[in-house]
Structures are given as C-alpha cells and as structure tokens.
Amino acid sequence: MDARLRRVNKEIADCKNDKSTNINIELIDNSPFHLRGSFEGPEDTPYQGGHFEDIVIPDSYPFQPVKMKFITKVYHPNVSSASGAICLDILKDAWSPVLTLKSTLISLQSLLCSPEPNDPQDAEVAKHYMTSRSSFEETARYWAQVYAGAPGKGKVPKVGAQDAVAIAGLEKAHVDQFEALGFERGKVIDVLRRLNYRGANVASISEDKVVEELLKN
C-alpha cells in the first residue's frame, strides 16, 4: 500500500520535472490514485492540440495496469468515440510493472500517431479510416478543434446543428441530398454514418439502399 503511494508520488514528480515531454498530471478529488493527465496531440497528425486523460490507479498497482480513458472526445479507430475507452495492449495484457504513468501516456500519444484499424475499439471510425484516409483525417482534425481546443484554420468551429455533418465525417452534399427527399436530418446523418457513406463507398452503395435504411427506422 505504502509502496504504491511512494511509487505514484515519484511518477507524478517525474512527469512534473520532465519538461521535454509536455505531459501534465493533476489530482482529481484530492486522491493520488485518481488523476487527470494531459498531453499534446502529436505534431503532423490531425490531433495537434490538447487532449485529456482520466487515470485511475488500482489497489494492486503496479502489478495491475492503470485504468485510462480519454475525457476529451477523440476521433480515432482505437478510441471509443462515445466513452473514450482505449484499446491498447499495454493497458491490458501487455502491462508490465516496469511501465510508468509517463511511459504509458507517451504510448498513448504515439497511438494517436499510428492508429491500428485492424484491432479497433470503434468499428465505425475504423471503417471510415480504411475507406478514406483523407476524409477520416479531416473529421479527426475537426473533432480535435471542437473538443480538444486545437487551433483551427481561420474559422473557429462551434458545436451546433451545422457541425453534425462534419462531426459524423460526412459530405454536406450527401446529407442535403437525402434530406431533400423528406427525411429528418439527424436520421440521415445517423444512417449515412452507419453505412459508411464516404469516399469510394458512395459509388458502391445505391441510393435505394440508403432510402430503404431510412424507411426502416
């Protein structure tokens, strides 16, 4: 018990003293075992900007892995877009007591650099990633701007009805097209996102199929 507290103290100090990594750790509700870590989105990725992390340190740490999830919404194949749950081996089976908070956070940072769509946490995002990389990156960048405070190019986006299309990573023209048929906008976005109506897929999914799906709900 005592050893765990000592080790966590050291790890927090370690992050604090290391200015080069830009990793920050703060306490939540005054417990050294419930922390909030933050790091910058890696450069040259759509995630440039702040991202936050929620850290819970279990009783049997360091023999059991820390529990981490994203508080900030992140558009990434290995991160649940709804809950922020992270699919990363070192947070599960591949955990080893020699890993630290700092090294784990750095691993997460590098996970943002190199998504692993074949082992997805969020299957829809993974499909989007596989179908059209550029469209995926655009959406990821948009999420980073809206949720993680990343600097936007010129325009500062606001979360609103207008953004729903971009948040879902769809083309405005496609949504408008089906909305014009008399369907509710939210429903159109929902269906198109589920069908992965993006990039090359647009050609392979017939309009009839989309309408069929829309009518079903």
Partner: peptide, 19 residues
Amino acid sequence: QSVADITATQENGMVVIDV
C-alpha cells in the same frame, strides 16, 4: 467491465465496443 463501456453501448447503439 467499466461503467464507461456500458454507457458507450447504451448511448451509441452502433458503436462496437471491443475491450
């Protein structure tokens, strides 16, 4: 299973949670 995952299933019916 953490509560987060459960909420994911609930809030967003389409997200496949793979923990």
